[in-house]
Write a protein that binds this DNA or RNA. Structure first.
Lengths: 140, 140
DNA sequence: CATCATAGAGGAGGAAGTCATATAGTGGAC
DNA sequence: GTCCACTATATGACTTCCTCCTCTATGATG
């Protein structure tokens, strides 16, 4: 049985692009392309680097909210780059993300523990130790 | 500063409705309404119970994929209920979810550790120990 | 009749992916 | 030197998936 198209593979889990971008920008300014490369390097980041379009989209939104600022930089070589820096508001937002993600991780842990309680995953005897049929108070 | 409308509050994080539903159904059959109540009880579940519509939608999809089966049950009292049970395929899918979620949790942990490395979150001295300006190889 | 318990449809909106395009420099084929 | 292919960089349109909110329906129940 293969689950290639099933969300249980994690295909559709959110990649948390914004907090990742903010975390990277907290270490110094970067442009979009470089952000993606940094993410690719840190394989620990959620399922590898997200799509470039997504990174630019996030940057644009975050700039609109005042979390990052950008300026064009022309280097001696290579095309012009748009460099982003994290503002103080962005830093505050990142701090909030940290709290949120810690809670989220704990909740996923709870869910995992709940799933593990079902081990061994043999079919529960019908009418056995499981829950009353259909979840009614009465036995119907 | 308040982040009420900011995704950093976790408002928009996925609630993992399907694995939660499957985990609950693994313990015995339930109908949609009862599923929501179970989730509300276990406050540890992701940010409380998800919307009822979402639960029904998930159940419908999962039934189409063969992960759950349903049958109408009429009790002595109360309106008819549509009770769902987890199939063997659903059990396999849940097992896959378990692996996926364990990885996901670890990746979130990595991200959190990465954010924590930035502590204390004082502004890095400009041109200081941070990364080269704009991420170029040269200093531009 | 008002309310509860239960089931569902429909649409809005956010996150992220794919595909397509634009533009500037770079390095080689000739 | 000129043309061409390729890399680096930025951006837009369209699509999918997930979740939420609102609205409707229907059979108890009091």
């Amino acid at each position: 049985m293969d689950f290639n198209d099933c969300p249980c593979t994690g295909r559709n889990l959110t990649k948390l692009v914004k907090p990742m971008v903010m975390a990277l920008l907290a270490q110094g300014q970067l442009h979009g392309y470089a952000l993606q490369q940094e993410m690719e390097e840190k394989a620990s980041f959620i399922q590898g680097a997200p799509d470039l379009s997504g990174i630019y989209r996030s940057l644009k939104e975050m700039e609109g909210q005042g979390y990052v600022e950008s300026s064009w930089v022309t280097c001696a070589s290579g095309p012009a780059k748009r460099c982003f820096t994290l503002t103080n508001e962005g830093r505050a937002c990142l701090a909030q993300w940290r709290e949120t993600l810690a809670v989220y991780r704990d909740q996923i842990n709870e869910l995992l523990r709940f799933i593990d309680e079902l081990n061994p995953p043999e079919a529960p005897a019908p009418g056995g130790p499981g829950r009353a049929k259909c979840g009614c108070a009465e036995n119907c």
